[in-house]
Design a protein around this nucleic acid. Structure first.
Lengths: 186, 186
DNA sequence: TTGAAAACTGGCCGATCGGTCAGTCATGAT
DNA sequence: ATCATGACTGACCGATCGGCCAGTTTTCAA
């Protein structure tokens, strides 16, 4: 009998984590669609059937890969909701950059899903939160500022892709300059 | 006997154009990888074998779809090569926006190819010209300005994707403002 | 030690992919 | 009218995909 539910089965969690780890790397390197369950299984050192034993399907693997980033974004949106307009914008600028840099891997993954992202319920929440964050980033209802915010996000996400050679800090500084120039905030 | 080689066989050219037309729409809507030769054939009103009769393979269809945009970009690079640094930058700002807006469809297509774009000789020239254009856009050897130019391109291309509802002119104005703010040119 | 549950796997399935090929049909010069 | 050539197609191929299942191995509480 298991008295403490917080103690996760060692084997289960270990295999699950390894699958997600390898799937992240493969998705980032070759894209979601181009990565097969067999590729993930081989990289994780198990069989394809094992991957499907731990996850209900390929989309479930994607959801697990995206989950940490989705959680961070959701928390940021929640935090921004309780701030004033200007404070929310400043928080969005700083935190969005941080999240994009830290989770730069998921940015690559999302790019490969864009054409069919509306039909993927696994990423719907993340996308929705991203749109919300875009509003905070604009800091205004002016259509031009909102469009510029979207422009900034596209540039930001694009810059984080294929940026493995750059330092996290360099990337952060670049994005900070770019965002503040675009949004005209000093 | 055919005396004038410039007179293309009507049927051949008509079918070829229709295939490229429909392929463009499908690639833009669903991405290159997600679009099958059968999809293209059905949309073009012919059989899959016919598509492969006119084109050596799926990559050849992609090359035909990208060709007009690639030609325009190549011409722009060539024109900028004969200008001064400042003039080349100004030309790059204006013309890059124009090309991205006019050929916004190919931007979607390229996005879907990014993870494996290095292995596609069909788009190598277009990518190379794009990098060259990025240099002209920076207008300086300063690493920061060059990075900002890349940032601008990412934002520009991202803005052109999924922008079917916006007017060409609205899109152009937005991109012009964004680029000049990022590059600090008026 | 034991036995039931958890973890895992090889083998298979239907579907779809890009691509090939032999052969049919249309066209147009002779 | 003939017939060589160009345009086109149905049928098929091997490969690979995501997913499923019966059965084997490992784990661990009793």
């Amino acid at each position: 009998m298991m008295h403490d539910m917080a103690v996760t089965t060692p084997a289960r969690e270990r295999t699950r984590r390894e699958i997600v780890r390898q799937a992240m790397d493969l998705f980032q390197a070759g894209g979601y669609n181009a990565t097969s369950l067999q590729d993930i299984a081989t990289a994780a050192g198990c069989s394809k059937a094992t991957v499907l034993y731990h996850f209900s399907g390929k989309p479930a693997v994607l959801a697990a890969v995206l989950e940490p980033a989705a959680a961070d974004v959701a928390a940021l949106v929640k935090a921004a909701a309780e701030l004033s307009r200007a404070d929310a914008q400043e928080l969005a600028i700083q935190s969005f950059i941080d999240l994009a840099v830290v989770h730069r891997g998921v940015v690559d993954v999302l790019q490969d899903i864009l054409p069919v992202i509306e039909q993927m319920p696994e990423v719907a929440q993340l996308v929705s939160d991203g749109m919300q964050l875009s509003d905070y980033l604009a800091g205004s209802d002016d259509p031009l500022e909102r469009d510029l915010a979207k422009f900034a996000i596209n540039g930001l996400l694009g810059e984080c892709r294929h940026a493995h050679e750059r330092t996290d800090d360099d990337l952060r500084k670049l994005c900070d300059i770019a965002l503040r120039r675009l949004l005209r905030r000093a």
